[in-house]
Design a protein around this nucleic acid. Structure first.
Lengths: 304, 304
DNA sequence: TTATTATCATAAGAAAAAGATATGACGAAA
DNA sequence: TTTCGTCATATCTTTTTCTTATGATAATAA
């Protein structure tokens, strides 16, 4: 038993519409015999006659009417596939699963998400907030489409683009005496508060402090930047936070914020996605949106 | 721009289901390159990538997911066409438009219709009651599927089957004096009531009476057999009615019914449909149902 | 690292499907 | 009856689809 083809359904539709083999063929831009044969073949595969051929006119049978109605639905469905794709081709549509690390998410997303739904109204953005290794795993497994993280990630299967350089700034208790520290060496002897293990920002902060070789005193750990800043406000120690976090986190805390002398410590914020993702172009566009969102915050940093 | 084919959608579905070109091809009983090419061609005609090819796995893109969902709907629709046809092939389904002449309809249909909906539960029977010429016109125009009429109709485009022979019986006022008429000659001098022009039964009655050459007295005309019998009951004259009508029409009228000597006058009841109708087989079966319904009435007549 | 394996893409020729032109059959209209 | 309109059939050509063989690439194993 041969299979029904869309071509046959298109011809059936034309024949139903025109009621005339010749004109139906013309409307399909083929010869009349070609159409006759396709109709006949469909009737044979179905095992039932769809049209009653009179000398004067061609009429669908009762069953034919039902088939034609169905065929029209099917053809419309196929057209909709084309339309759907055309509509979605250059714009992001459907579901976009974005991973963001915790030291970026609370500061970037409030600015990014409105822009995003403004630019792509039909986009259903799903945010996954987690530490870099987990995000990369999920990205690799296809459970995320892209992620906003600190670079580099150095995964050969992933494409990464840098978006901007974000400075690390120092947070001290408001009542700190003396001049603000201007470089890593000045941190010696201060109690440095860090995020707990797993956060890349912890490593970045540590690596800045470790630069001159002197290890900071064993610090307390916090689960979020917010917690760290609150701890600083309570006079427990000092901490480093990324520029973007300053505005939000120091608003309600009694702390002093200061930046370092050049070479300023920074981290590189960027986006990653699977190299074989077909959305490369859209992701690149998306990264510009991220930059724009970041730059709404003057303290965020400089584009790369 | 080439056109989307069902084949492509079937392959897309298989690829989505298996997540593997090789296994998808196997499930479609083709080679892997054949499937690869069809997928590629669909992606090209759509102008968008539907699957992300990893070395390890094949994943639908976001857009691909949407297309696959649609494709499944389309394929299901096509399957439903097959199922629909298969279900309808040997049984009558959908709408059946039946024409019946007025001198049959009121007596046959009350018996036929229950049998019919019993036998074909999904059949939507539409009855058109009219005189033979109009029924034949509508049949020719495709506005009726079949008609139950008195034969012959002698239309070369129509197929006719005789179902049964129905006797014509005489209806006299109940108080009629003397013996009942036994043959056409006995009708001479009686006032014969006839249906109005257009009814074939009028012509049949007339032709019976005319046989011996003597013309019946100019009779009054009635619009229905029911009217005629009532008129007879009122003593206005006599009339002929078909056997099937006896039970219904003489129940509430004060009349005497008698049949004629052999050769009894009869009319042939049969079915007609367009010769090129694909439902010939079903109509033949239907004619048996008509016969069965007619025979429930003992006075109806004999099968042909 | 290097070899191996798994997997998808590409190429070239073979098979199948679809199309065109020419022609036949048949009923309707003249 | 002849002619015309219409759909079916036949034959050949073109296009599409398929298969087999082979190449490229990345993950896995040695």
């Amino acid at each position: 038993m041969t299979k029904i083809t869309l071509r046959q359904l298109r011809y059936v539709e034309a024949l139903a519409r025109t009621g005339h083999f010749g004109r139906a063929a013309e409307s399909c831009a083929i010869s009349q015999p070609a159409l006759s044969i396709q109709i006949k073949e469909l009737e044979e595969t179905l095992g039932a006659q769809l049209f009653e051929r009179g000398a004067r006119e061609v009429r669908p049978t009762g069953l034919g009417e039902a088939v034609i109605a169905r065929a029209r639905e099917v053809l419309r469905g196929v057209d909709e596939i084309s339309e759907m794709v055309r509509a979605a081709r250059d714009t992001l549509t459907g579901r976009l699963r974005v991973g963001v690390i915790p030291t970026i998410a609370p500061y970037l997303l409030p600015r990014l998400l409105p822009d995003l739904s403004d630019r792509f109204p039909d986009l259903d953005v799903q945010i996954r907030e987690s530490v870099t290794p987990r995000l990369l795993t999920e990205l690799g497994e296809g459970r995320l489409d892209t992620a906003i993280v600190a670079l580099p990630v150095s995964d050969p299967a992933l494409q990464e683009v840098a978006i901007f350089e974000e400075p690390l700034v120092l947070v001290e208790p408001a009542g700190a005496t003396g001049p603000a520290p201007r470089n890593p060496q000045d941190l010696a002897g201060l109690r440095l508060l860090l995020l707990e293990e797993g956060h890349c920002f912890r490593d970045q902060a540590l690596s800045f402090c470790n630069l001159p070789g002197q290890r900071p005193r064993e610090g307390l750990e916090g689960t979020s930047l917010s917690t760290l800043v609150q701890m600083v406000g309570a006079g427990i120690g000092v901490t480093l936070i990324p520029g973007m976090a300053v505005e939000v986190e120091t608003r309600s805390a009694d702390v002093r914020v200061s930046s370092f002398d050049a070479p300023q410590p920074t981290r590189t914020i960027g986006m990653v996605w699977r190299k074989n993702s077909p959305l490369t172009e859209q992701f690149t566009g998306l990264s510009e949106l991220v930059l724009a969102a970041a730059q709404q915050d003057a303290t965020a940093g400089d584009p790369r």
